[in-house]
Design a protein around this nucleic acid. Sequence first.
DNA 1: ATGACAACCTGTGGGC
DNA 2: TGCCCACAGGTTGTCA
Length: 269
Amino acid sequence: MPELPEVETTLRGIEPWLRDAVIRQVVVREPRLRWPVPQDVHGAAGQAVRGLQRRGKYILINLERGSLLLHLGMSGSLRVLTEASPPGKHDHFDIELAGCTIRYNDPRRFGTLLWLEPPPGRHPLLASLGPEPLSEAFDGDHLYRRSRGRKAAVKNFIMDGRVVVGVGNIYASEALYMAGIHPLRAAGRVSRARYRGLAESIADVLQRAIRQGGTTLRDFSGAGGLPGYFAQDLLVYARAGQQCFQCAGEIRQKVIGQRASYYCAVCQR
DNA sequence: ATGACAACCTGTGGGC
DNA sequence: TGCCCACAGGTTGTCA
């Protein structure tokens, strides 16, 4: 469920509660996530929060010595609870602070809770990640350089976290539509000029989605429990069979790289 | 190095 | 109402 805008929304929701807080304890009820939750995470207890950051779709809670690394997977969400409430189904762990509990729910258990020794950036999961799409380091020239000789579909290319982080299945379709690029086009056969447009589209769609609190298709909600409202702004995603907003042609759906992809065969070449 | 795809897991919705 | 299948916002690991 969560791509970069949803993770950013989640981060912003928990940030005010974590700022200057001390971790009271981490309660793990179900350690069987994407990787087994290590005992190390209990080392967080008693440590003060130094800062919070997002790296791609990862959330890093940096403590005095070491960091908690969270990933929401496909169906994870965090919720800030200010009153005691009994854990429900799929509530796999809590991060308890003095004034609240941050509770993780994840039906599919593709999410992650790991302990990172400093410096966090050297951890294998973070070490080879590409640039942040909303940073100076990301632009069309970067995409152009990285794509030379690549035969993979451009949609798969921009969803590769080593190329650029945070672009998931929804926003990949959206950005390619905005840039007029067919998702199946070989990444190595997209011009520099069109990659510049694509990079701008990626940054634009992610920023607008963040402003709307992300996209809620079925069950995403931010840390305050509210859904995101970007679903009503989607141009192609989940619109198979409906009319293209530009040419009134029919939006197509096709599986690319095991994922449903949406595009207009007229507007995207 | 690159690309294709199976795997991880649960819930939901559609067709019959 | 119930059963079975396809599919769902992510990422890694394996194999050719």
